[in-house]
Design a binder for these strands. Structure first.
Length: 891
RNA sequence: GGGCCUGUAGCUCAGCUGGUCAGAGCGCCACGCUUACACCGUGGAUGUCGGGGGUUCGAGUCCCUCCGGGCCCA
């Protein structure tokens, strides 16, 4: 039933209109009565709310949405929640600045706390002026502040047309997520998968927190090689080359490769360190690089990860001098205090940063004659915390770990299990799998999850304080799961009262929070209702799809696999769809500092959502895409074309008297060869698009659909125009040929709208609203079968042939520089044999569309006549053009 | 140093398991205001498929090597 086709069609305002309608109609609401087999569930990345919106968001989320819409139309009940990631350092900073507070976990929770500021006009409140608040209060403030960010994101997503179920949202810091995160941790603990250890680990001195292997970033860092002398008992000198001479005071051994001829005689002997005179052994270890520097290295506790390896494997003593704040210890260490360097240390090194200590040590070495030559400039890869700007130190501390296959785990080869999980996961594109394999294969330690920060999900433990006042870390006090989430820094464990906090015989709360990944790795469980709504869980978990960026395969993806494997013994999802980066036209990553960032909302306003989606959907998964406004313009054109072509196709269904009409979508009424040929071609397109979508190749689905659609408009529509208009308007006067054309147009339109709906949801929905009921996004995905049945034995080539014949006629007019309306009085056309039947069959339509008023003679093309690339080799060999029609005066 | 991806018309990219694969769109040139569309239509030009070897009857398509981009891990 055609209700109403607007006289003027357009895209403006469609986003708002249909967003409202979809919300009101619950078009994307998840029907939780669906069973697992009927559901397609998506574990969407929760965007960082305190981060900025950028085109990368629009890009990758569009990829996911096309899949969601496809699956929904295929009849799946799509579970597509949205989360907000507000857990972590960026939010911590924003809350501090916005409200003028800082988190102090030692403080008690204050009911009804009101912060001193509400927005500080862009000015940071000085740390000294910030009001300290408890962690619970801090979290509450975070939730208040991020509500605003969430609104902005939601507005953007709605404008973009993400078919998310907005009734299903979560925050990574909300009570549900905190409870899930703590529960998962406690279960890891109970099963022995979480453990604490006092061990040397990577440490960021700026944020003063431990850092996990996954958060490392190796960067080029400038430094100097210093040639430093150690002394043999016989007075000989052994030179090492080091970039960190300030650690001479922390040296525990000199180490060379066992095969290194130069040092064979020294192995097993001892040498003394310069300045401090500490005696250390010379040892052999294969990790020493013979070709680097002098080939012999000074092993300190701890300069880098190799030191840790030597220290562990060679069972060396610990002589730490760098503290958690990145400064050398203020007390003179005992092994130095007794030696010749005690005064030097006390006067020049104690309490200094590593950087200034280095200068002091180098000066002292130069004075003592233990520095050979001057330091030589070098660039070397150095480990940084990804959010930090000072090189990481290695300090010894007590931390919590979750097993992830990085270390041996008695009785269980967890690494092999996780590698196996990786094999079971379908990566799209498949080559992204190697990033997972490489990462898991290269792990050399378990997952350090405790962070010495304040804002985040608390490690849900307390520790008894002994009668002597010592904290007993070995016997943590564990809360009951029903109590979760808890904040051990402001709540007392069962059986204790708050006034026993920190006193002998009492308790202390663990002050640390967990790594943000420790919570976000649980998103599949959190959204699925784990231990909260097991009925939902059974309907959606394990999930179908995890879309995400390639940069976080080692973090989010891997950690999610670990948690799901440990907790549920399954993969969290079947498929992982990995999106690429957005590059600016110089093939550089878009970045704020380059000033080439475009705000996504601005883009949507300028080009329209369908246009922006088209650009995004044109890029394949896993492939970096250029930011191209041109591509958006093409998308906009496609959307407009869909409106206009639809308008045309539907005019034949409208009774001019009433303005409404009935279109019978009965393929049996399609009787003319070329109409059937068109449907046969469309059937191929349906099959290809479906196959592509099933393989997560949305780009190919778009491409085949789009190119068919344009050919449909350019050729088919023109060819059947005359026939479709027919002689009269009354149904009784219509010939079968006219009915065939009109029906084929409507059937094709109906199918193409559905094929395009995942890409340009607004334009297709608009057209759908003119003549169909409900939403196109809940309409069934088309199948080839009815089209094939209608097409019978028709060959798509027939339409191709007729299209080429029409183009050949257009060409002679184009070359004669006359209007396309110019009549052709007489023409002869040479047609290659394979196309001859098709052109002959469609001769009436070809003549009509080409305005051939006289005879059009078809002859078989001779061998070598015509270029197959131009109009399929069809050539008009003779023609007589009539008078061009008079130009209409301009209105 | 190891690994992955990538290099096809001026631009952005398709080209699956080797045999109409030398393509599309944009841009460009020319023409045309044809009642679906000027946010348009029609026609046209454009490439030693990064270089060099090899396998093959036949290679953008497989192998080797070199060069150039991007990324990951050491």
């Amino acid at each position: 039933m055609v209700r109403e086709v607007p006289d003027k069609v357009g895209l403006d305002g469609l986003e708002q209109r249909y967003d409202e309608r979809w919300s009101a109609d619950g078009t994307f609401a998840f029907d939780r009565t669906a069973t697992r087999g009927q559901v397609f569930s998506i574990d969407t990345p929760p965007p960082t709310v305190s981060g900025s919106l950028h085109v990368g968001h629009v890009f990758s989320y569009t990829h996911t949405d096309t899949v969601a819409r496809f699956q929904r139309m295929r009849g799946k009940e799509v579970f597509y929640p949205m989360g907000w990631d507000d857990n972590g350092l960026p939010t911590e900073r924003r809350v501090q600045n916005y409200f003028g507070v800082r988190c102090d976990p030692s403080l008690p929770y204050v009911e009804g706390f009101e912060p001193p500021h509400h927005g500080t006009d862009g000015k940071n409140v000085k740390p000294g002026d910030q009001v300290p608040v408890s962690r619970r209060n801090f979290i509450e403030l975070c939730e208040r502040l991020t509500a605003d960010d969430e609104r902005q994101f939601e507005e953007l997503w709605r404008r973009l047309g993400l078919s998310v179920d907005w009734a299903q949202t979560y925050q990574t810091i909300d009570a549900t997520s905190r409870a899930a995160s703590q529960r998962a941790f406690l279960r890891n603990l109970a099963r022995g998968e979480a453990y604490q250890a006092e061990a040397p680990g990577l440490w960021d001195v700026t944020f003063q927190t431990a850092v996990a292997q996954a958060e490392l970033e190796a960067r080029e860092y400038p430094g100097f090689f210093h040639r430093v002398a150690f002394h043999c008992p016989d007075g000989e000198k052994v030179y090492v080359e080091t970039t960190r001479p300030e650690l001479v005071g922390a040296v525990v051994a000199l180490i060379a490769h066992p095969d290194d001829e130069r040092y064979q005689a020294l192995f097993g002997t001892t040498v003394t360190s310069p300045l401090f005179g500490v005696e250390v052994p010379v040892l052999a270890h294969p990790a020493a690089a013979m070709d680097k520097g002098a080939g012999i290295a000074m092993c300190c506790t701890f300069g880098d990860l190799t030191d840790v390896q030597w220290w562990r494997e060679l069972q060396l003593p610990t002589r730490s001098i760098v503290q958690r704040d990145g400064r050398l210890s203020r007390e003179t260490p005992e092994w130095i205090a007794a030696g010749p360097g005690a005064d030097l240390y006390a006067a020049e090194l104690a309490g200094k940063t590593a950087f200034s200590a280095r200068t002091a040590v180098v000066d002292a070495l130069r004075d003592s004659g233990d520095l050979d030559g001057e330091p030589v400039k070098t660039q070397r890869m150095t480990n940084f915390y990804e959010k930090g700007d000072k090189p990481l130190e290695i300090v010894t501390s007590r931390q919590w770990y979750i097993r992830n296959g990085g270390r041996d785990y008695e009785g269980r080869d967890l690494k092999a299990e996780l590698l196996q999980r990786g094999k079971e996961l379908d990566f799209h594109p498949d080559f992204m799998r190697v990033r997972y394999d490489n990462w898991v294969g290269g792990l050399n330690g378990d997952w350090l999850i405790s962070r010495q920060r304040f804002f985040g999900v608390a490690v849900p433990l307390w520790y008894p304080v002994t009668a002597a006042g010592d904290v007993d870390h070995e016997h943590p006090i564990v809360p009951a799961e029903a109590e979760l989430p808890i904040d051990p820094t402001s709540q007392a464990p069962a059986g204790y009262t708050e006034d026993q906090r920190g006193v002998p015989g009492g308790f202390v709360g663990d002050a640390d929070v967990m790594d943000t990944w420790a919570t976000s790795s649980l998103t599949p469980l959190i959204v699925s209702g784990w231990e909260r709504d097991e009925d939902l869980m059974a309907r959606v978990y394990p999930m179908d799809l995890r879309p995400q960026g390639q940069d976080i395969i080692r973090t989010w993806l891997f950690a999610s696999v670990v948690r799901s494997h440990l907790e549920k013994g399954v993969l969290p999802w079947k498929h992982a769809a990995i999106s690429g980066w957005i590059l600016d036209p110089d093939r550089k990553k878009m970045s704020k500092s380059k000033g080439n960032v475009v705000t996504p909302m601005g883009l949507l306003e300028e080009h329209g959502a369908d246009a922006v989606r088209y650009w995004a959907a044109s890029a394949r998964l896993g492939t970096d895409a250029a930011f191209e406004v041109g591509q958006m313009k093409i998308g906009r054109r496609l959307a407009i074309k869909v409106l206009n072509a639809s308008k045309f196709a539907l005019t034949f269904g409208v009774d001019p008297q009433t303005g409404t009409g009935e279109i019978v979508l009965d393929p049996a009424r399609v009787t003319v060869g070329i109409d059937r040929a068109m449907l046969a071609g469309l059937a191929d397109v349906v099959e290809q698009a479906t196959e592509a979508f099933e393989a997560f190749d949305h780009t190919r689905a778009l491409e085949v659909t789009e190119s068919f659609f344009w050919a449909f408009c350019d050729d088919y529509l023109e060819l059947v125009k005359d026939r479709a208009y027919g002689a009269g308007t009354a149904a009784s006067e219509l010939t079968d040929a006219t009915v065939s054309a009109r029906t084929a147009l409507a059937v094709a339109l109906d199918v193409m709208l559905r094929l395009l709906a995942p890409f340009i949801p607004f334009a297709t929905e608009e057209v759908w609203s003119w003549w169909r009921t409900g939403s196109v996004h809940r309409a069934p995905w088309p199948t080839a079968r009815p089209l094939r049945e209608a097409a019978g034995d028709a060959d798509p080539l027939q339409l191709t042939a007729a299209g080429h014949a029409l183009a050949a006629l257009r060409k002679i007019k184009s070359e004669a520089k006359v209007s396309m309306r110019t009549p052709v009085l007489d023409a002869t056309m040479a047609v290659p044999a394979p196309l001859l039947a098709g052109v002959t069959d469609a001769l009436v339509d070809v003549k009509g569309a080409g305005r051939v008023t006289g005879p059009l003679e078809l002859v078989a093309a001779a061998e070598g006549q015509g270029n197959p690339d131009v109009q399929g080799g069809i050539v008009v060999t003779a023609s007589e053009l009539g008078e061009p029609p008079a130009r209409k005066p301009k209105a």
